[in-house]
Design a binder for these strands. Structure first.
Lengths: 189, 189
DNA sequence: GTCTATATTGCGATAGAC
DNA sequence: GTCTATCGCAATATAGAC
């Protein structure tokens, strides 16, 4: 529809509800209440409920991409440091402040085909960033195995943290990133 | 309600729809059609839609538990063989024939608190089987790290396969299990 | 840009005949 | 155990005033 800061803020609020309840269980009335308006007014900002989901997922993936690129810029240029930076950035966009990245991963199937088509490029860009870093780790002999499988196993391990990680618990997202990298790089001594 | 073979079969058919559409998008009318009856008749077998979900999840977890135990019985008694057997069994119950195990993992949040309470013991039994095998691998020096984190990372990597694995593709579930175990046991030489 | 009011649809579940 | 018929309700979305 448009790209106003107002819409950005509404999208952010929608993301929170989608994370808590899931897309299907979130009603437009709940969304409107969270936004401080009535349900009818919501359709002035978004064509329909689907469009809200698409906006949230676009925001979530874009954000993950930006954060990952920044993390790679800032870290050492060793394969291990870069692997760790990616994992850390991924977990931060996933687990911090109930983020839109979670929606992008867990509600992807709920997108209608048109939106899925449009957003798949963004998702692919993020995933190929991962594959690039995995490639470097393979070339450096840091890890071994099939590039396709390794990257999907790693992303799976990270994405699943949403189901069990407790931000109030003893472990930081950095702890998790460190342990994951250690697990795949120092298996047998 | 009861435990007839009829109900077992209806549960199996419900599982397939839940995997395809998700619990929320599956209507009682869709379920009834799949079962070859009218929607009103469905409530002779299940009190409500929630109870169908609980039945599917119970079936899925029970099945995963039985398969895992059998796989551990049948394999060599080395830590690596046992790890591999668990991974193989997990993938088979997850990826073969659109199984109820997927529903147990991905629709857990949709259970009402009562059912969640009742079924959590079954889930815990399955997860502690995993932790036991992970413990053995740690003791054998096959892998290193935090027991809690390693088991969750491994299960995450496996559970995420549902999102990308293509049964018609070139890789078997056994290939996946082998690659995953290799990844965490032979990181750096 | 937000409101009130409402159209319309499809949902889960029930009642009672057979 | 299955059917037909339907209840009651909550869902998305629209119309038009302000």
């Amino acid at each position: 529809m448009n790209d106003s800061p107002r819409r950005k803020e509404l999208t952010r609020q929608a993301a929170q509800l989608f994370v808590q309840e899931g897309f299907d269980r979130t009603t437009v009335r709940m969304l409107a209440q969270e936004m401080g308006i009535k349900s009818g007014s919501l359709f002035h900002h978004f064509r329909d409920k689907q469009e809200i989901l698409a906006a949230v997922i676009e925001e979530g993936t874009q954000n993950a991409l930006v954060m990952a690129k920044a993390a790679l810029e800032a870290c050492d240029h060793t394969a291990e440091a870069r692997l760790q930076a990616m994992a850390r950035a991924h977990l931060q966009t996933l687990l911090t402040d109930r983020n839109a990245h979670v929606v992008a991963l867990y509600e992807w199937r709920r997108l209608d085909p048109g939106a899925r088509d449009h957003l798949s490029h963004l998702r692919d860009a993020y995933e190929s960033l991962w594959e690039q870093v995995i490639d470097e780790a393979l070339e450096a002999g840091l890890i071994h195995g099939d590039r396709f499988l390794v990257s999907r196993f790693v992303m799976g391990a990270l994405n699943w943290t949403v189901r069990w990680y407790d931000p109030a618990g003893p472990r930081s997202t950095d702890d998790l990133a460190h342990e994951l990298v250690a697990m795949i790089t120092h298996g047998a001594a």
